[in-house]
Design a binder for these strands. Structure first.
Lengths: 139, 139
DNA sequence: TTCCATAATTAGAATTATTATAGAATAATA
DNA sequence: TATTATTCTATAATAATTCTAATTATGGAA
């Protein structure tokens, strides 16, 4: 709790009740949640929470570098609390988004072809190993 | 014209009037068009074209491997007629999506961490060199 | 050519993520 | 306490995409 507040303050974000709870959810469910997942979790603790607040808070978090926005699934935004450079696999069978630790030559590059780089997004579409072995078991 | 038909047939796509015109537009405007850009171009030639047809056709093209879908701009899908592996830069200033020819170690990989890979998407967010030099000129 | 079956196209409605807006609640400050 | 700024909420607006049902085009067979 105290730690969460410190994290917010270190990023110049005023630690409101809602923001602390949203950060807490991101800490717990290290994953790639979308707004609805976060909203549903929040409802358990703050029944009056508004979805707009979730959107606003996540925008603020993204601006201040507390989360990364993932545009992987075309229909919705995902939020990644892990801001270290890494890639993702979107499993086309089970729909999960899985971290992939690739050694990307451009991970720390500041420019490429004369363009300046602020952010790298890399992801794969395919079938995750769990789905692969489940498929195999069927034969 | 004949060539466009051959391209469609080689991918097992029936060459209808609409599909040929859409392919023609993709050939001409090698870029990363969204549905509205394609739709607006089409209107000049087929005033009765339906936006649903554009969506359906592009889905078909993507299924058959004629185009790649780019989920870079969060608000809309982009379609890339260049299906050779390459990356993209989204310029946060002018909004353009620019091809970036990176030598990615995973470009031809079939699997990673035990997951099987069907598709790779890599892109950068930053400022393109044109915007950079325009900014410099101002000082 | 004419008929038939199938696939493609169309228009409009439905869905859904996200943003905009404006008022209410809360916190900060003096 | 009074004032002010910030945050939060509910609702409406926007816009991309999908769904649906009816219409039209297409290719093959008689």
């Amino acid at each position: 709790m105290e730690e969460l507040i410190k994290i917010l303050q270190s990023k110049n974000i005023q630690p409101s009740h809602q923001r602390i709870k949203i950060l807490e959810i991101l800490e717990k469910n290290k994953g790639h949640m979308n707004v609805n997942m976060i909203y549903d979790e929040l409802l358990k603790e703050i029944p009056t929470i508004s979805k707009t607040t979730v959107y606003n808070t996540l925008s603020t978090f993204a601006e201040k570098g507390l989360v990364h926005c993932l545009t992987i699934t075309p229909e919705e935004m995902r939020y990644d609390y892990d801001t270290k450079p890494h890639h993702h696999l979107l499993c086309t069978q089970c729909g999960r988004i899985i971290d992939v630790d690739v050694r990307c030559a451009y991970a720390d590059a500041m420019e490429i072809d004369g363009h300046s780089i602020e952010e790298i997004q890399g992801y794969f579409k395919g079938t995750c190993k769990e789905c692969l072995s489940r498929d195999k078991a069927k034969h």
